[in-house]
């Protein structure tokens, strides 16, 4: 690139200093999102290129699937739809009743959240960090720390937003913690990622805590990032070790962390009172 100019060593030293400065700024503050965004424009064609064969594959499968499969699918989805519809009717009534009761109690409580469906890019990021990339960015009002769900539970939170895509860290990443509570009795604790895709650990519960194998853990809403009440994991194993102050508890995430293609981005704290108080049924507003 530079044929003349400063010597190689001087260039190396300057670049190393710039890198250290960049890393410090990037780690300590979020000041570099502009730099990242502009570089992401260079990089996103590569991402698109890598994603293309997978997209093409699913397009071909969709278009070449037989009439019979389609009919079967259709029948299955129809019955599932009916079932869910019936459940939603009940939910709507319950939600209404719940809200009325809470109003009586004088507490403000938001039952429904605004969601947006996003697709995952088929790109492989660092194998030792559990990151995924979704195809919605700041253009769709995605924000840092936003919760990401799939149909079965909580997947993670957004850590980086670019104009056309954003990056999310899964709850199983070893740097990730999520405040949860046991659905059966409301026992609150924190679930910590283990770095393995099918395991979370609950390191802060005493040996005598009321928790059993098979308990469902849901988000507790504490911490202000994840909204209350979404399923997170199912307790797999509880080992009470008399020699240590805390029990060894592991749980398996309910979300399909390695299989989902579509994810949901959630805006929690959506102001329900403003425009939803009289519409029947909680429909998703994409």
């Amino acid at each position: 690139m530079f044929t003349q100019g400063p010597s190689l060593t001087v260039r190396l030293v300057v670049l190393v200093l710039i890198s250290i400065l960049l890393m410090t700024l990037d780690h300590r503050q979020q000041h570099l999102s502009a730099v990242r965004s502009s570089l992401s424009i260079v990089v996103s064609p590569i991402q698109f290129l890598v994603d293309l064969p997978g997209n093409l594959g699913s397009w071909v499968t969709e278009n070449l699937s037989t009439r019979r499969t389609l009919l079967e699918d259709n029948a299955r989805l129809r019955s599932q739809h009916l079932l869910l519809e019936a459940q939603i009717q009940k939910t709507a009534a319950l939600e209404r009743e719940n809200r009325r009761l809470r109003e009586l109690l004088g507490s403000s409580f938001k039952v429904s959240d605004r969601v947006l469906i996003a697709e995952l890019y088929k790109v492989d990021l660092d194998p030792y960090k559990h990151l995924v990339r979704v195809n919605k960015g700041s253009g769709d009002e995605v924000y840092i720390d936003q919760p990401v769900l799939d149909s079965a539970g909580v997947m993670g939170q957004i850590i980086e937003v670019n104009p056309i895509y954003s990056t999310a860290r899964l709850i199983t990443d070893s740097s990730q913690v999520i405040p949860v509570q046991v659905n059966r009795n409301g026992l609150r604790t924190i679930a910590v990622g283990t770095g393995s895709l099918n395991q979370l650990s609950l390191p802060y519960l005493p040996n005598h805590a009321d928790i059993r194998k098979g308990d469902l853990l849901i988000t507790s809403g504490l911490g202000g990032i994840y909204p209350f009440g979404y399923p997170v994991a199912v307790v797999m194993d509880v080992v009470a070790d008399p020699g240590s102050p805390f029990a060894h508890i592991t749980a398996a995430p309910t979300a399909h962390l390695d299989r989902s293609r579509e994810v949901l981005l959630v805006w929690s704290g959506y102001n329900l009172e403003q425009d939803e108080i009289d519409t029947p049924g909680p429909e998703a507003r994409p």
């Binding site: 670049l15 890198s19 960049l22 890393m23 570089l39 990089v43 991402q47 660092d126």
Partner: peptide, 27 residues
């Protein structure tokens, strides 16, 4: 033609692509 500067820039692109700390691969 291709030395420290170009290598550094490729590393920077890799950082953005992989979502790692900006400057890590570059250095």
């Amino acid at each position: 033609r291709f030395s420290v500067g170009s290598g550094w820039f490729v590393g920077l692109l890799l950082d953005v692509l992989q979502g790692s700390l900006l400057g890590q691969h570059a250095l």
